[in-house]
Design a protein around this nucleic acid. Structure first.
Length: 446
RNA sequence: CGGGGAGUAGCGCAGCCUGGUAGCGCAUCUGUUUUGGGAACAGAGGGUCGCAGGUUCAAAUCCUGUCUCCCCGACCA
């Protein structure tokens, strides 16, 4: 993409309303525009990042054996009256009336709707397990939206739902999502720690929240320090095999959010030097809640024993739009965002310091064309701005690498490669720079 | 929902106390000179002062109501 043809409305000054780094940078880097409290337009740069995050989530859901579908944003009130949540959910649910006076709502989640799909079509244990998901916009009329997209009212969520014949089988599904989540967040460069969580209005007793540690996180967390650097299980995990030991390794150590925290247990189970209390951002939450909805809504299947059984269910959420902010919270500096390679909106920025100079134009264009062909998706700054503007702009939007093409270097036949994260610079011939950048993305599908 | 703060040009703000018909910085447009870390000079455009009432000869300014946004807390798949 040529910057001169892109839509990238950058802000030089920080909008007064933005308090935390991710919100500030998302506004300044032209990623989002707020329309009202907790409701945003996703501008091209922000949308591009969100799409990449969404795709990683999708790939890891698929890898774990979940199947993608799509349910509507608008739901009828009847299903929620059946489950009993129509009244329980309260003002957080956005309720709508259509022209015929029918009660509708903008879905805050989809347990009821998918349970309805399930009970319509599934009759036998032979069709189990089922693990279905969709990635769809949700609306929760939060009392207090804040922190930009981190707590928006409208947000994009991946929610998966599992249906099994009994609790043992339900735990197998739960474990698949548990492992898939660790891999998902790891691919985004995040260290997410699974923590014992309260099941809240969902019900049930098996539940984990996945939190990334950040000072601006909304939750207070307590955990064993070793959990933070524990590597993800890896993409070669056999999801059809027994995952229990992998899950156990990561749940045996103490890790709880404030609502579940037990100071005494924390002190007895975790040696002093390993006690970590910090703040975290919730990016995923998984629940195994059994027959709460299947019972209320009559979702049952015939078992091998010739009797009817209510499906044992679980639900599994990832905040896709929230992750855009979460990744920035975890990866930025004073100059701007530092994108992990896996979610960066563009693979590399090419800075032409002297647009209009034949040699600079020629070399920049050549690098641009070759990197496009190599699939690296470069952003070419071909605007007629001064060097300083170009440097700070590229730092702000935070692409992992920059290639600087200027008359000074070209005299000696070289361009400069800058690593956004470390600040390291290296001089290379244009050809070597192209090869270097291409190699950095060899193992990442952009 | 309780407490606090703010709505004035695209963004950041001053002006309000003590009413007199709107200003600064950045951004934008034109020109000239510049050009390797947010350039300089000259000129130009852009505002129903959130909205609705009221007081007054006169309201951004005073009064009443209302809407919106932000922060702290409570809340939160």
């Amino acid at each position: 993409m040529r910057l001169s043809r892109y839509f990238l409305p950058l802000l030089k000054e920080t909008p007064a309303s933005a308090e935390i780094a991710s919100h500030r940078y998302m506004l300044r880097a032209g990623m989002i525009k707020q329309h009202s409290a907790g409701i945003y337009s996703w501008l091209p740069l922000g949308f591009k990042v969100m799409r990449k995050i969404e795709q990683i989530v999708r790939e890891e859901q698929n890898r774990a054996g979940a199947i993608e579908m799509l349910m509507p944003t608008i739901q009828g009130a009847d299903l929620w009256q059946e489950s009993g949540r129509y009244d329980d959910y309260g003002k957080e649910m956005l309720r709508i009336t259509d022209r015929a006076g029918r009660e509708l709502l903008y879905g805050p989640t989809n347990e009821e709707m998918l349970t309805d799909v399930f009970r319509t079509f599934v009759r036998s244990y032979k069709e189990l397990p089922q693990l279905l998901y969709h990635i769809q916009w949700k609306f929760r009329d939060e009392v207090r939206p804040r922190f930009g997209v981190m707590r928006g009212r409208e947000f994009l969520m991946k929610d998966a739902y599992s249906f099994d014949i009994d609790m043992d089988a339900a735990v197998v599904s739960y474990n698949k999502m548990f492992i898939a989540y660790l891999n998902t967040f790891a691919r985004m460069g995040l260290k997410a720690v699974p923590m014992q969580a309260d099941t809240g209005p969902i019900g049930g007793d098996l539940s984990h929240e996945f939190l990334i540690l950040a000072d601006t996180g909304e939750s207070e967390v307590f955990c064993h320090a070793d959990l933070v650097d524990m590597p993800a299980p890896g993409l070669d995990v056999d999801f059809d095999g027994d995952l229990q030991s992998l899950v156990d390794e990561r749940t045996v150590l103490y890790a709880r959010t404030d609502e579940m925290h037990d100071a005494k247990a924390f002190e007895t189970q975790v040696p002093r030097s390993k006690r970590l209390s910090a703040r975290g951002i919730e990016v995923g939450h998984i629940f195994c809640f059994g027959d709460k909805y299947s019972k209320a809504m009559g979702a049952k299947v015939m078992g091998p024993d010739g009797k009817e059984h209510f499906a044992q269910m679980g639900s599994y959420g990832v905040g896709v739009s929230r992750l855009v902010g979460g990744i920035i919270e975890a990866s930025h500096d004073d100059a701007g965002i530092i994108w992990p390679k896996s979610v960066t909106p563009f693979g590399v920025g090419i800075i032409n310091l002297r647009v209009g100079d034949d040699e600079c134009d020629k070399v920049s264009e050549d690098i641009y064309n070759k990197l496009c062909a190599a699939g690296v998706d470069p952003l070419y700054d071909d605007k007629k701005d001064r060097g300083g503007v170009k440097f700070s702009r590229m730092d702000l939007i935070g692409l992992p690498y920059q290639i600087v093409v200027g008359p000074r270097g070209l005299k000696d036949g070289i361009v400069e490669i800058k690593d956004r994260k470390t600040g390291e610079r290296q001089n290379q011939s244009p050809e070597a720079a192209i090869a270097f950048i291409t190699a950095q993305y060899a193992d990442i599908s952009l």
